[in-house]
């Protein structure tokens, strides 16, 4: 497998984490209840922290410093799926996104923990513990809210329906998909997707939410290769506003 392929993989993981962590941090100080404000903020920090871990791996492969990579690229240069760049919306959407994304992430990290590239395996192994908590958090919330009352159920179901096409975009195949599988890096996006569908179906059924037939949902692809919604560039401009006052300064 080429280094280019490995970078392709690491970039999409890192960018997903950064953008979602950034988005979720918008709730800090404004959450629906104090304890949840704190918990959700921790998980946003974990995401930003794990993006840094992956940008650091990229830096070791010769890419620029993590700060430079994260704070100076334009939207087209980002490899995150469109799902993570969507605005936070109401709490039901943020929770559903957290649930759908972190289930995928847990499977990804579990698979990458077995990766023959030791540096990658090490990072994944470590991070899967904290993502395990994220998934516990998500599962509990989804189950508790979805059957609590009609208002909550409706909100959760609507957010789920809206989120699913974007969520499938997490698994947009890489141009190096076969290389990863052949080199045993990880079993590939399709494999994650299959396992993910199985895992989330179980929880969603327990929660009393309805999953539409998978073949009726069209995945939103494009994010992995620079095609983004109108939301990403404003997010980046905001994120880099201070940094760009003087990108060479030590902040």
């Amino acid at each position: 497998m080429t280094e280019e392929a490995l970078k392709d993989l690491l970039y999409k993981i890192a960018d997903d984490q950064l953008i979602l962590g950034h988005r979720n941090s918008e709730w800090t100080g404004m959450g629906p209840l104090l304890e949840e404000d704190i918990a959700f903020s921790s998980m946003a920090q974990d995401k930003v922290g794990s993006s840094l871990a992956f940008y650091t791996l990229l830096h070791d492969l010769g890419e620029q410093e993590p700060d430079t990579v994260a704070f100076t690229r334009n939207a087209e240069q980002f490899h995150n799926c469109q799902f993570v760049e969507l605005p936070i919306g109401e709490y039901n959407f943020s929770l559903i996104r957290h649930f759908l994304f972190d289930h995928a992430e847990l499977i990804r990290f579990q698979m990458l923990a077995e990766c023959p590239i030791e540096e990658v395996a090490q990072v994944a192994k470590k991070l899967k513990g904290e993502v395990k908590y994220h998934v516990m958090h998500a599962n509990t919330w989804i189950k508790q809210l979805s059957n609590a009352n009609e208002e909550a159920h409706t909100r959760m179901q609507e957010s789920l329906n809206y989120a699913l096409p974007y969520a499938l975009g997490i698994f947009e195949p890489s141009q190096f998909e076969n290389d990863f599988i052949e080199a045993g890096i990880y079993p590939g996006e399709k494999a994650i997707e299959t396992k993910w569908k199985e895992n989330i179906s179980k929880i969603l059924t327990e929660a009393g939410l309805t999953l539409p037939a998978w073949d009726s949902i069209e995945a939103v692809y494009g994010g992995r290769y620079g095609k983004h919604t109108e939301h990403l560039q404003p997010l980046l401009s905001e994120m880099t506003e201070v940094f760009n006052v003087d990108p060479t300064a030590d902040w």
Binding site: L33, L34, E35, E36, I38, A39, S41, S42, Y133, M136, H137, T140, W141, Q144
Partner: peptide
């Protein structure tokens, strides 16, 4: 303490408030 509707949620909250 944490305020929570169930013990599972109490744990989720406790972890980040008291062991982060």
């Amino acid at each position: 303490i944490v305020h929570a509707p169930t013990e599972e949620m109490a744990f989720l909250f406790a972890k980040e408030q008291f062991s982060r």
